[in-house]
Design a protein around this nucleic acid. Structure first.
Length: 495
RNA sequence: GCCCCCAUCGUCUAGAGGCCUAGGACGCCACCCUUUCAAGGUGGAGAUCAGGGGUUCGAAUCCCCUUGGGGGUACCA
């Protein structure tokens, strides 16, 4: 079956993790069935829509690895696909035509109620403990009455007649759903009094125009679906199938929101989450492969994706699990790939003044063996080995002294270690050459090797948790290693 | 309020009547590995399958009720 699905974001904010997930499910289904994935921008909320957000959304989807078969080429302009344009504000004529059709058939009518009247109605209904609903004041206006309003200079909004009855549909994930039209809140506005169309209207006109066969979207639209179905029918369009995805939740199980969670994809990218992990994680929120495989590439997910296996219950966004998956995927990256992805994060450290020079690709490459399995996110690189890229590290005297040692022992340990390291470095400076003599030194003095190593570690890095010591010394280089030990001894002496 | 949807370890989930004294993963704890930190390995705690009724020889799985949670209810999308 040639399914056509779509993601229809509103450029009223940066790409939201929930939008990305909905896009992903549409994309996965499209690719799994070899259908068509359409991207449409719903920018009818002119006041809140911006080109910057549009750009952010398109770039974010691309970054995640989702390419659309039809849709805007880039932010601002350019479209590809037979149903262009794919921006609603450029499709105004088609909404106007559809509105005209409904008006002519009296399935919609102009409403001249003022916002004050509407607010008063709502207040009265609330006071009477009744559900809010349009009272239908303008539903029966004669053409003379309408003309009179127009003569007054008032411009009407267009309301759709919902009529009576029960709307039923078979949701691909929820099963059979029925909603009585009387619960829809009365005749609803489809075109504002300023002439711009509203979401419930445009979404139907466009899904029909773009031949969408399956509408895969968040569960928050489930209750609105009858409105859409009514519109599809009134316009004489074929009703598509629906699949309502479970919501992504905050820790308190309410709908994921900016207020309680980090929702902008950009923020995850900035922290060093990689696309493989994000895609993998998002796909597993509300869907599972059915077996115990969890670390899956996008291609593996496409191969296994099944719209019928989508869950019904909402899923709490668990950042810890995302981080674990991110680590899994960072460890799977090829060296060159990892270096490429790490570079901007090192540059960011430099820009932030946390390091003082930019390491070369070769230097980064030499670090990969000790760094790759220690990065939960790319953004952790500075914290992990940033001490390599600064001239001096700040060393706390107290931290310098291992738990079992006193100041005097530490001084002696560092001094003796310095001699050995200086000597070792005279020949070659490699991790294998460093360990035996230092271990021997500890044994000769009756020290625990770990204590000696810890003193050196803190001396050269300023921290107690680092990659393996000997690799660290080598990465630091002979000269700097010695200099830092000298400096640490000074610090110990109260310098 | 009204309408709709949902309900398995803290979290993501496996489970589509007997394979379940409910499996995996994250997180947590312990141990192993080990120079610290990670990674990795092993093991453990953690769910009377929200509660109550049915149906059935047999229910986490089917039905009903209750409870809880969520979503919707705009001239936002």
């Amino acid at each position: 079956m040639m399914d056509r699905v779509r993601i229809a974001p509103s450029p009223t904010g940066p790409l939201h993790i929930g939008t990305a997930r909905t896009a992903l499910f549409n994309f996965l289904h499209a690719r799994h069935v070899e259908g068509t994935f359409v991207l449409r921008l719903e920018d009818t909320d002119v006041a809140r829509s911006t080109l910057a957000f549009e750009k952010d959304i398109l770039e974010g989807l691309h970054w995640l690895g989702m390419d659309w078969d039809e849709g805007p080429e880039v932010a601002g302009d350019g479209s590809r696909g037979p149903y262009a344009p794919y921006r609603q504000m450029q499709r105004l004529p088609s909404y106007a035509a559809a509105a005209e059709l409904l008006l002519a058939a009296d399935q919609a009518y102009p409403c001249f109620c003022t916002s004050e009247e509407l607010a008063a109605d709502r207040q009265a209904q609330e006071a009477a403990k009744l559900p809010p609903k349009y009272v239908g004041r303008c539903a029966g206006l004669t053409s003379e009455e309408r003309a009179a309003f127009v003569a007054e200079g008032r411009r009407g909004a267009l309301r759709f007649r919902v009529g009576e009855g029960v709307v039923a549909f078979d949701d691909l994930v929820r099963g059979h759903v029925e909603i009585d039209v009387s619960n829809l809140g009365g005749d609803f506005v489809i075109v504002r009094s300023d002439g711009t169309p509203l979401y419930h209207f445009t979404v139907v006109v466009d899904d029909a125009a773009m031949q969408i066969t399956k509408v895969i979207r968040g569960e928050d639209h489930l209750s609105n679906t009858p409105k859409h179905i009514l519109l599809f029918r009134a316009l004489g369009y074929q009703v598509p199938e629906f699949a309502h995805l479970p919501l992504i939740l905050n820790a308190d199980r309410s709908k994921m929101s900016k207020r309680k969670s980090q929702t902008a994809l950009d923020d995850y990218i900035a922290q060093g989450f990689i696309r493989e992990a994000l895609v993998n994680y998002l796909a597993l929120l509300g869907w599972s492969s059915g077996n115990e495989d969890e670390v899956l590439s996008i291609d593996e997910i496409i191969a296994r994706f099944d719209i019928n296996a989508i869950h019904k219950g909402g899923a709490v966004f668990d950042r810890e699990r995302l981080e674990w998956l991110n680590g899994q995927w960072i460890r799977r990256l090829e060296p060159d790939e990892l270096i490429d992805r790490l570079r901007p994060f090192v540059a960011a450290e430099l820009a932030a003044g946390r390091i003082e020079r930019m390491p070369s690709d070769e230097e980064l490459r030499s670090l990969l063996p000790v760094v790759q399995e220690r990065l939960p996110t790319l953004g952790a690189i500075g914290d992990l080995v940033g001490f390599l890229w600064v001239e001096d590290v700040a060393v706390e005297p107290a931290m310098l002294v291992p738990k079992r040692w006193d100041v005097e022992t530490t001084r002696a340990g560092l001094a003796a270690a310095r001699e050995l390291i200086a000597h070792a470095g005279a020949v070659s400076f490699e991790a294998d050459e460093l360990e035996p003599p230092l271990r021997a030194l500890a044994e000769a003095r009756g020290w625990k090797a770990g204590d000696l190593f810890m003193a050196i570690r803190v001396a050269v890095t300023g921290r107690t948790a680092t990659p393996p010591l000997f690799d660290t010394l080598v990465a630091l280089g002979h000269e700097r290693a010695l200099a830092r030990i000298d400096r640490a001894v000074e610090v110990l002496d109260g310098g």
